[in-house]
């Protein structure tokens, strides 16, 4: 239990150990721990952000889907309407055309009838003339009675 040079030796040793610890042990450990702490904090924050972004994206996609659905329904409804209109139009046009054709055919028929009637009239008048000629050969002068006969044929 004597105080001797050991005292000085221990003081020097102590100083050396503290110096070494301060130089090579404390800083790298504390830095690594601080860096790890920071990276964990950042990771947690990023996870939180990611969660929020995910929720946002989900909401966006849902909205988008709903909009798209509405639009599709609109388009279908419009198309239906348009198709109906087109059908109606086509129906109208077709019936008009049919009417026109009918009218036209009727007119042609009428003309044919008139034509046939006129022809018939002419033939009948000729026939009548021949009949009358053969009956009244002498008394009737074709030239004198021609006017009367044509009047007759016209009134037929």
């Amino acid at each position: 239990m004597n105080i001797n040079l050991t005292l000085v030796g221990e003081t020097i040793m102590f100083a050396m150990f503290v110096w070494f610890c301060m130089k090579f042990i404390w800083p790298p450990l504390v830095e690594a721990m601080a860096a790890r702490k920071k990276s964990i904090e950042d990771g947690l924050q990023a996870a939180e952000r990611g969660k929020e972004e995910h929720a946002q994206a989900k909401q966006n996609s849902e909205e988008l889907l709903a909009n798209t659905k509405n639009q599709a329904a609109d388009i279908i409804a419009n198309a239906d309407k348009q198709a109906n209109v087109m059908i109606d139009n086509a129906k109208g046009a077709a019936s008009e055309e049919a009417d026109k054709i009918k009218v036209h055919a009727k007119a042609e028929l009428d003309q044919e009838i008139v034509k046939a009637r006129n022809e018939l009239k002419g033939q009948v008048s000729t026939l009548v003339m021949r009949g009358v000629n053969s009956v009244l050969e002498k008394e009737v002068d074709a030239k004198t009675h021609k006017d009367m006969l044509s009047k007759l044929s016209k009134s037929l």
């Binding site: 001797n4 040079l5 050991t6 040793m13 830095e31």
Partner: peptide
């Protein structure tokens, strides 16, 4: 005063170096 306690110096040195060695290893791997 002109004497050294070899055991005190020796054990304290070995233990101090043990401490520094282990912690320096950890510091290197940190």
């Amino acid at each position: 005063f002109m004497a050294f306690h070899v055991d005190t110096l020796g054990f304290s040195f070995v233990l101090g170096v043990l401490f520094l060695f282990l912690f320096a290893k950890a510091a290197k791997r940190a």
